[in-house]
Design a protein around this nucleic acid. Structure first.
Lengths: 117, 117
DNA sequence: ACCCAGATTCGACATGTGTCTATCTTGACA
DNA sequence: TGTCAAGATAGACACATGTCGAATCTGGGT
């Protein structure tokens, strides 16, 4: 009801996601945003995500992060969920697959939770 | 493995939650943190939460925020989930029940998503 | 005392989700 | 070409979750 004009310019990576403090959410915005929170709403996925997010070079091989207490297929399943939610990206190099946090994601989610400023 | 001593002093509101960029999470930390994300991981709940978080006086009556596309008992159910997750508090005044964002919650969650800096 | 409106709880039900074992795919290397 | 290891996929299954209608609870008026 208020913002017109300079909207599309600012957010290059994440196409969404106003702060929750900014006002009511549209159904579609809520869907997208909730999808991201939901992806981090499982302990195993959150640990995997943290393992990637805190990796030395910003990326981590699956083999280095899969020690989270579940079987290898389950790890793969959760990593897929995180990919589908747009939180992680993956790249195969040789025998290994490397995951990294999708660009802009941490900022986007932090923005959703930022006070109205 | 590293922090000893001055733990209990610092965090008065949220008893948890290091940044995901800070390193691997313990199973219990992951459980607590994921619980909060999970609570926001449903579109209806996220809309309710946003309605409360953006309310004028920091609080909102259920009757003012329940226009999120589901039945009234379902609204109540989701508000309960948000309460149980520690994200909202509620107080009855007369006929109405008012909800507000639990103190420190937005900061705590934003911290979890903050870059290591 | 009665009733009414706001809000929660209850019971039921369909759908979604996390987990596993087994199998398949992909690339490296002998 | 054959084999091995890293990961992904498939199928199955128990359990959690979102939703509703009906019943219940809680205060305020009349």
């Amino acid at each position: 009801m208020s913002n017109l004009g300079l909207v599309a310019i600012s957010a290059p990576t994440a196409p969404c996601c106003p702060p929750v403090t900014a006002g009511a959410l549209t159904a579609t915005d809520a869907e997208v945003m909730a999808g991201m929170f939901k992806a981090l709403g499982d302990p195993v996925r959150l640990r995997l995500f943290a393992n990637v997010a805190s990796a030395d070079d910003g990326e981590a091989c699956v083999c280095d992060i899969q020690d989270v207490g579940v079987s290898q297929p389950t790890v793969s399943h959760h990593l897929k969920k995180l990919r589908e939610a747009g939180l992680l990206t993956s790249e195969r190099r040789g025998s290994w697959v490397y995951y990294r946090v999708a660009p802009g994601v941490l900022d986007a989610m932090a923005t959703m939770l930022s006070p109205t400023r």
